[in-house]
Design a protein around this nucleic acid. Sequence first.
DNA 1: CTGAAAGCGCTTACAG
DNA 2: CTGAAAGCGCTTACAG
Lengths: 340, 340
Amino acid sequence: MATMQDVADRAGVTKQTVSNVISGRVPVRPATAAKVRAAIAELGYTPNLVARSLATGATRTVGLFVPSVVGAFYATVVEEVEDVLEEHGYHLLLSTTRLDGERARRHLASLTSRSVDALLIAGDNDLIDHLPLLAEARFPVALCAWESEVPDSFPVVTIDYEQAGYLAGRHLRELGHERVAVLASPAHGTRIRGFRRAFAADGLAVPDSAVHYAPEPSQPGGHVAATAALTADPAVTGLFATHDVLALGALEAARSLGRSVPHDLSIVGHDDVPESRLTWPALTSVAIPSREMARQAIELLLRAVAKSAAPTNSLQLLRPELVARGSTGPVGDPPGRPGA
Amino acid sequence: MATMQDVADRAGVTKQTVSNVISGRVPVRPATAAKVRAAIAELGYTPNLVARSLATGATRTVGLFVPSVVGAFYATVVEEVEDVLEEHGYHLLLSTTRLDGERARRHLASLTSRSVDALLIAGDNDLIDHLPLLAEARFPVALCAWESEVPDSFPVVTIDYEQAGYLAGRHLRELGHERVAVLASPAHGTRIRGFRRAFAADGLAVPDSAVHYAPEPSQPGGHVAATAALTADPAVTGLFATHDVLALGALEAARSLGRSVPHDLSIVGHDDVPESRLTWPALTSVAIPSREMARQAIELLLRAVAKSAAPTNSLQLLRPELVARGSTGPVGDPPGRPGA
DNA sequence: CTGAAAGCGCTTACAG
DNA sequence: CTGAAAGCGCTTACAG
């Protein structure tokens, strides 16, 4: 493995000159530079990044924590983050926390040891308890895709989840639905709040008894919750699933219970994952700009790294958008008239 | 940021002793160790991993290249790799190549600069041309999820894709299908070969004209390919999709064309992604042990790192398994008799 | 524009 | 069991 000294010896200069040629921060006479470049090529020299990191104090690596990478939402976040990092010449150190807070804490602790220039935490499931650990981190930290209890000690780039819930609710209201139920995951309180606001605007309430929590954030979980919701109150005409996978399960459950979607049951999801387009009927869903969110968050972080200052501590809320498809229709829509 | 020297000063010892306490490789008198530990705690000292890496030459980081992280297959590989790494105290440097060979090459080049102790390359899409670059890498390299042109210069842990195709074919043969078509992605030649073997065993051929390539490896791509296959030869009774997403598209296409699955069309997929269980009818698919594969590959690599030797250069083929569900049935099965 | 020096924070033999 | 020294391969002021 050739070292910078080897290159210097071969080119007949000192290693500082080699360093200058590589970094370009100090001008080098063209003839000298050419000799150095030739030596680099002949030796197949490639700088030792670890040594550089030790000298500069920067690793050009950014850590990213996500709850999981299975599932379109976080996978998209990962890819977008990687794209931005790539543009700026950074590497990605990935950690999936997988509902294991203890494991998350360990990973966090090891990143603390200077191995990362910045840290982005996506999703609020597993790390919330360990955030204080980060308060003294010597690298910038930002959060994204945060819904519950947005901490004010770090910059946050997230979705306006309240608005997302509201859009879902307003859509059902506009179609005339009055009696509805919610299929939820525990952390989705903000979406439910927004959903309720849409009904409250018309003097209607969505009682707690109409909120059914899925045993797990999966399609089968949604199936279970939807079945519970529809048997608890068969008069329900609209369902809001706080997560598309739950909506997919609800679609199944509706079929099992002989409810026709959207003719006698409307279903609206949240996230607008690609699969939503592929169900039958296609799922109406609240689309959230996840790529945009990831990009904003990581760029904010990289800006802080560049000027080696703390990032501006702000809360940025990106706007969701309702995408109406076939799974929702006017209440009382007679069967046979296809939805959307 | 406290340094080892700071700890040493506070504990009244030299930094070598601190190092010994931390590493445990040299015995330290209990009283001294206690003083050191106290100092570490008081200072909140955490060793600088970059400095350690420079001194030891090991980064305790492993690089993983995957084509993408969106989609259950590679996402699962990523999580399994991370789990194994976590067990061994390693970090994950992730790179998704995203069909961009040039980008892949750049990432590869930068890893070469000593930032990684080992490298696992999953999937053969984007990096195949740059593999020779790795021949002189000073860290162990292994490949997994490799189908086409398995290189012999690196250890490979992959699936017996030929057998996978064969299982799909045999299943259709056992159900009496004779006239079939294949919906394929370009890189899946091995699966098709196995599929053909099952038919050849009974003296039947699957002509090239029966193989329809999807414009892209997505559900819509499968839809297009299936439509082409079924209109080119309406007498086809069985479809093998070399990738489950294509099969999902085929399911849609069949519905559009008024073909009832499995009564007058059987569909078998490949990969057995979780979504396959959720279609209606549920998709028959060839399950491949992707977690197992990822684990074997990464453990092989870690073993090589541990004994700082080249990994045993072998080709390991893991066995696929057919999972029969509702989307396949006996040929000529009258409608109304539900499949599986 | 080029060279000599010090230092980044650790680990690894090697003496005492 | 503990301390003094050298070195991992770079970069960053600082002289010439």
